[in-house]
Amino acid sequence: MPTDFLQLAGKTVLVAGVANKKSVAWHIARLLTEADCRVIYSVRSEARREQIQKLAGPDATVLVCDVEHDEEVERLCAEVAADCERTGQRLAGLVHSIAFADYDSVDGEKGGLKPFHETTKRAFLRTFSISCYSLVALANGLKDSLADDASVVAISISTTEMASENYGYMAPIKAALDSSLVFLAKSFSQFSRVRFNGVAPGLLKTSASAGIPGYVDSYLFAEKATLREEAVKTEEAAAAAVFLLSPRSSGMNAQRLVVDAGMRTNYFDADIVRAVVDRG
């Protein structure tokens, strides 16, 4: 007889940042659905809502929220609160899978990227607002809709200490996201048992990553650098997120769960070193 190992059946989770069927958020939502967990989807625009509604089915709850605008965040939180009141069930979890880098505004050319020290204030602050502060805003706005033992999971990156030039100022933003998880965990501990953790995957093949200048080359290198010489799959990152959402991870709080197939241990792999030496 099958058992509900994840203990998510019958619960409700809000997944914010669903873009398309390649996104981490979508894979998380699908795994939650398979676990008999109800998913509330949050997307950026009405056009995206129509797209996700087709993927999720006509009965799915798909809400629109562009987190760059405070009034839309407030509306989303009000809609979720109304849903909780209607169903008599608070959120068991929140997934924050929202990231946007305003690369184009750095030098005025699509795909162009200036050195980090030339990052514009406008680009940096806009990216921070959407990709990091939105977590704080959503957590605060949804605090009364979250169950006392709810789990909040944000999607980060495997390392923010490696200066990947083509990733530009997004890594410092993700570092701020990681730190925000810790501070939110401490802040919420004053009145609840809500947990805040992050999934930190290596390079993934998603639609969002395709917009990063030079990403394909970095992806191919990362694949070679993993211990298995196979890139991390989006499904693997999603599975880690679902574990963190579940009561099975109840002992984890203010943590980053790295999912990189061992890449961070393997930069001096003999084949990689030989390729550089032979080229030189």
Rank of each mutant, 00 (worst) to 15 (best):
V273T: 10
S209N: 14
V273D: 01
V199E: 00
G211S: 15
S151G: 14
A9L: 13
G262K: 08
V24A: 03
R248F: 01
K11C: 01
L184A: 07
L245K: 00
S250P: 12
R279L: 14
G211L: 09
T159N: 08
C77R: 00
A78E: 13
W26F: 11
V194M: 04
A56F: 03
Q7N: 15
L220I: 13
A175K: 11
Y219L: 14
E34I: 02
V64S: 00
G88C: 11
V199P: 03
A238V: 06
A241I: 02
T119W: 07
V194Y: 02
C37R: 00
I173L: 12
G108S: 13
V80A: 00
L76N: 00
A56Y: 04
F196R: 06
I52G: 04
D102Q: 08
V242R: 01
Y219H: 12
R38F: 02
L8M: 03
F128E: 07
A101V: 14
P115G: 05
G141Y: 00
G251C: 04
D217H: 12
D278C: 03
L204V: 05
T127V: 06
F116H: 12
R193H: 14
N197M: 09
E161D: 13
A147D: 14
A176C: 03
A139W: 00
V24G: 02
F196M: 08
Q53E: 07
A154E: 09
D36Y: 10
F191G: 01
S45L: 04
G112F: 11
R279G: 05
A275W: 12
A25R: 03
M252L: 15
N140Q: 11
L76V: 00
A175W: 04
L91E: 01
T119H: 05
S131K: 02
A208C: 06
G10H: 08
A210K: 14
L14V: 12
S189A: 15
I28L: 09
Y219D: 05
Q51V: 12
C77Q: 01
T226P: 14
R279W: 12
S105H: 08
